[in-house]
């Protein structure tokens, strides 16, 4: 066991690739834990998943347009940001306007995003695009600038949630009452969706769509089973995400296992284990 940790620490000290992967895993925990806790308590995990999948449409469109119309500035990340914001607007409007049909409509947007992404990437001229890197990501390809961007996002999320914590909690718990006390529930709902979209967009680069969704929901869902207030859920979720990322990276390094899927495996395992313990009374 001691050799295991010594080996991993040596790798962190000597190999920049591992070091950046570890740093991005820890730094991204801040965003995953805080935004994920809000997503889980507001019970909009499926909305977050729909936003994540619609981002693939933006990535595909950006790759296609940049190659066909020779627009080198149109990067996949820019396409993902635009698609994320568009999907927030559409999904937010649908969930507020068509409550009785929202699951069907969100399912359609989810599928449309993926289908559009795959079609754009299929017809994009030039070298074939590796879809797997978008879907599963590769934390080992994280660069220094990725770590910095993730840290900036984490701080932004932390500040925004800190400033509007009580209003976000009120809108999540009882939207109608919050509205009666002068809180614009729609504005805070869109703020939450926007934070979710930006988190997923940035974290897809290092974690991929599947891992980003898993880390957004599972640690927060695990933490919420044992916590009595939302800020404690957030702290626990941040810690749990950091542990899953670090342990997943260490084990995958030592035993040559794909990192992203193994981190998802750990997050699911923690959530499953949480059912062995007593949860708060319903």
């Amino acid at each position: 066991m001691t050799d295991f940790f010594a080996d991993f620490l040596d790798a962190v000290a000597e190999v920049p690739l591992i070091r950046y992967a570890l740093l991005s895993g820890i730094v991204s925990s801040l965003t995953f834990g805080v935004v994920g806790s809000l997503v889980v308590t507001r019970q909009i995990a499926y909305v977050a998943s729909a936003i994540a999948h619609s981002i693939l449409g933006g990535i595909g469109a950006a790759v296609y347009c940049s190659r066909v119309y020779d627009l080198p500035w149109l990067t996949p990340m820019l396409g993902a940001i635009v698609a994320g914001l568009v999907s927030v607007a559409v999904i937010g409007w649908v969930t507020l306007r068509f409550k009785e049909r929202e699951d069907t409509i969100i399912g359609a947007i989810w599928a449309l995003g993926m289908a559009a992404g795959l079609l754009f990437l299929h017809y994009a001229p030039g070298k074939a695009v590796n879809m797997e890197s978008f879907i599963f990501g590769n934390i080992l390809l994280t660069s220094r600038s990725d770590v910095v961007a993730t840290l900036v996002l984490g701080v932004l999320v932390f500040v925004l949630v800190g400033l509007f914590y009580h209003k976000l909690v009120a809108v999540s718990f009882d939207e109608e009452f919050a509205r009666l006390r002068g809180v614009s529930s729609k504005a805070y709902y869109f703020l939450l969706l926007g934070l979710t979209a930006m988190s997923v967009v940035l974290l897809v680069r290092i974690a991929g769509l599947i891992l980003a969704q898993a880390l957004l929901v599972l640690p927060a869902a695990t933490a919420s089973r044992f916590s009595r207030s939302l800020w404690v859920v957030m702290v626990l979720a941040v810690a749990l995400t950091a542990v899953c990322n670090t342990a997943g990276l260490a084990v995958s390094y030592e035993y040559d296992i794909p990192t992203g899927p193994f981190i998802v495996f750990l997050a699911v395992g923690c959530y499953a284990l949480s059912f062995l313990f007593r949860r708060n009374r319903a």
Binding site: T41, H166, A170, F173, A178, R181, G182, R228, V232, A282
Partner: peptide, 21 residues
């Protein structure tokens, strides 16, 4: 309300003061 929502009784009552925040 969601009975599992992680919130204390005091935090719920404080929602009555949201227009002062």
């Amino acid at each position: 309300f969601d009975p599992q929502f992680p919130i204390s009784a005091l935090d719920i009552v404080l929602m009555g003061r949201l227009n002062h925040l």
